[in-house]
Computed example of a mutant assay.
Amino acid sequence: MNKTLVYLYDPLCGWCYGAGGPLPQVLESTGIALRLIPTGLFSGSGARAMDDDFAAYAWSNDQRIERLTGQVFSERYRDQILADRLQGFDSAPSTLALSAVSLTSPEHEFEALKAIQAARYVDGLDVTRLETLTAVLEDLGLDAAAQRLTCPDSGLLQANDDRVGQGRALLRRVGGRGVPTFVLQQADSAMQLLPASAIFSDPQAFIRELNVGVNP
């Protein structure tokens, strides 16, 4: 099957975490390959400080995602992440960690993304710290990626910049609005933007949409 589901994401996007619930079922049901590309949406100019208003907005949004998908947003996350005014809302470190995985064990990037999200939203760990992210990767047995992340070299930094640039360019190309954005890539390089909302409201409809796209 010469078709791929391209997943444009940001590791600190609550909706991306929510998509991690139904997405494995989608992949298993369709047999389609997954390719992840970060967009850096909440890094650089998209990063921000955590304040009371933003924390309240995030928690309200998180509860909606939990109701739709069953993905857990714990009280520990609320107390140790959203209530911490010294911890910024910045996905750059997590994105760099996932680029390290992409370089060393690309087949484990989705697994690593889910582990980083669980570390934040369930365990209440600070994934803006490289030490936290290194430990997450080591727990997954991704030692090569953890080692690259401990002392990021120019190769890793350039690969990370390239991936984010590619993600942003593709988001513009397909007219995606934020993340998660899902794109069905055909063998002839044709790109089909998929309705991301369906993966939350009706995963079976999302599966049917993919099956239509993957039929010869």
Rank of each mutant, 00 (worst) to 15 (best):
G21C: 04
G20P: 03
S60H: 08
I116N: 03
V214L: 11
G213P: 07
L184M: 11
Q87T: 14
R129S: 04
Y57A: 08
L193E: 02
T4P: 10
S43R: 05
T39P: 00
Q25P: 10
L41Q: 05
P24T: 09
V212R: 13
L157F: 06
R64F: 05
W15A: 07
A196I: 04
K3H: 12
Q166G: 13
L36R: 09
A187M: 06
V122Y: 10
G18M: 03
S154N: 11
L23H: 09
T132W: 05
G124Q: 12
L113Y: 12
V136M: 06
V122N: 07
I199A: 01
V174P: 00
H108V: 03
T134S: 09
Q80M: 03
A33L: 09
L68W: 04
L36K: 02
A119Q: 12
D10R: 00
A146E: 15
G70P: 08
F89H: 09
Y57L: 13
L8Q: 01
G40D: 12
D126M: 02
Q185M: 13
W15R: 01
T128K: 08
L193W: 01
M191E: 14
I199S: 05
A159I: 06
Y77T: 04
G176A: 08
G178F: 03
A118L: 02
D84G: 04
I65S: 05
G70W: 09
R129K: 15
R163L: 11
Y17D: 08
D143C: 01
G175A: 06
S105Y: 04
T39Q: 01
E109P: 00
D52Y: 02
T150N: 10
S43V: 09
S60P: 00
V136N: 09
S201D: 07
V26D: 05
Y57T: 10
C151F: 05
A169E: 08
D143R: 13
R173D: 08
E28A: 12
L171E: 03
